Amino acid sequence: LAALHAEGPLAGLPVTRSDARVLIFNEWEERKKSEPWLRLDMSDKAIFRRYPHLR
């Protein structure tokens, strides 16, 4: 499970980098069924690119 911001401008976004990794992994797991070539990237760089508020 990932903790998400409940309200405000960040509502629905992950609270920590660990939470972001959970979301990225879950999405990758779903997408790899139809796109088996996808690589999993959970590096800090990938997290910041996707969720800049975690910098």
Results as ranks from 00 to 15, higher is better:
R21E: 09
F25Y: 15
E29G: 07
G12R: 06
L23S: 03
E35P: 05
M42N: 06
R21K: 10
D44W: 09
I24Y: 03
F48V: 14
T16D: 06
D41L: 03
K32A: 10
L38V: 11
S34F: 12
H53L: 01
L4Q: 06
S18M: 13
G8Y: 04
A3T: 14
G12N: 07
L4A: 05
A11W: 08
R31A: 09
L54T: 01
L23F: 05
D19A: 09
G8E: 06
S34Q: 12
A11Y: 13
P36W: 08
D41P: 01
W37D: 14
E27A: 06
L13N: 03
D41S: 04
E30G: 08
K45E: 15
R50G: 03
K33V: 13
E7T: 13
E30T: 11
K45D: 15
A3P: 04
H5K: 09
R50Q: 10
S43G: 06
M42F: 09
A6F: 10
R50E: 08
E35S: 06
I47C: 02
G8V: 04
T16M: 05
A20T: 00
S34K: 11
M42E: 06
H53E: 01
K33H: 10
H5C: 06
I24P: 00
E35L: 07
D44M: 10
K45C: 15
K32F: 09
L54A: 00
A3D: 11
T16P: 00
E30P: 02
A20W: 01
P9S: 11
I24C: 06
F25Q: 08
E7A: 12
L40F: 05
T16F: 04
F48E: 13
W37H: 14
R50K: 15
F25A: 07
A46I: 09
E27N: 05
A11R: 13
L1C: 14
E30V: 12
D44H: 07
R50H: 07
E27R: 03
L54R: 00
V22Q: 12
T16R: 09
S34E: 14
W28R: 01
R55G: 10
S18K: 15
Y51F: 15
L10A: 05
F48G: 10
R55K: 13
L4E: 05
P14E: 00
N26A: 13
G12W: 04
K32I: 13
L1Y: 12
R17V: 15
E35I: 06
P36H: 08
E27Q: 07
S34W: 09
W28Q: 02
I24L: 11
G8M: 04
A2S: 07
D19V: 03
K32T: 10
A2M: 07
L4W: 02
E30Q: 13
E35F: 09
L54E: 00
L13K: 07
R21G: 04
R49C: 14
V15Q: 08
F48W: 08
E29A: 14
S34D: 14
L10V: 04
F25V: 07
E29P: 02
L38E: 07
P9M: 08
E29M: 15
L23P: 00
S18L: 14
P9A: 10
A46N: 10
P14Y: 00
A20N: 01
H53W: 02
L40D: 01
G8L: 03
A2K: 04
L38H: 09
M42G: 02
P9E: 12
K45R: 12
L10Y: 13
D19C: 06
D44Y: 09
R21Q: 10
D19T: 03
W37T: 13
A6N: 12
R49Y: 12
A6T: 14
R49N: 14
E30L: 11
L40T: 02
P9I: 09
R55A: 13
V15R: 11
F25I: 15
L13R: 03
A3I: 14
A46L: 08
M42L: 15
R50D: 05
R17P: 11
S43Y: 02
E7G: 11
P9Q: 07
E35A: 06
F25P: 00
E7Q: 11
G8C: 06
R50V: 09
R39V: 15
I24D: 00
P14G: 01
R50S: 08
G12S: 06
S43A: 03
N26W: 13
P52T: 02
P9Y: 08
P14L: 01
K33Q: 12
A6I: 12
A46P: 02
G12E: 04
V22G: 03
N26M: 14
R49D: 15
F25C: 07
L40Y: 05
W28V: 02
F25T: 05
H5L: 05
D19K: 02
L13Q: 08
R17T: 13
K32L: 09
M42V: 13
A3Y: 12
L40E: 02
E27P: 00
T16K: 07
R55M: 12
A11T: 13
A46V: 10
R49V: 14
R55I: 14
L10I: 05
T16L: 04
S18T: 12
L38Q: 07
R31I: 05
W37V: 06
M42R: 04
R50A: 09
A6L: 13
G8D: 04
L40S: 01
L4P: 04
D19M: 06
E7I: 10
N26S: 11
E30W: 12
E29W: 15
R55P: 05
P36D: 06
P52E: 04
D44K: 07
R17A: 14
P36T: 06
K45L: 12
S43Q: 02
W28M: 02
R50C: 08
Y51M: 00
E30M: 11
A11L: 10
S43I: 03
R50M: 09
R17N: 08
R39C: 15
R17D: 07
A2T: 07
I47A: 01
P52V: 02
S18R: 15
A11V: 11
S43V: 02
N26P: 01
Y51E: 00
L1A: 14
E29N: 15
R55W: 11
F25K: 10
V22S: 08
K45M: 11
L23T: 04
L10K: 05
A3C: 15
T16Q: 07
R31F: 06
E30N: 10
I47P: 00
P9W: 07
F25N: 05
L1M: 13
S18C: 14
L4V: 13
Y51V: 00
R49K: 14
A20V: 01
E29I: 15
A11S: 10
P36C: 07
D19P: 01
R21N: 03
L10T: 05
A6M: 13
W37I: 05
S18I: 12
Y51T: 00
A3Q: 15
E7P: 09
G12A: 04
L38I: 10
A11H: 08
L38F: 14
H53I: 01
E35M: 07
F48K: 08
E29L: 15
R31N: 07
L23Q: 06
L1W: 08
R55L: 14
F48D: 15
A3F: 11
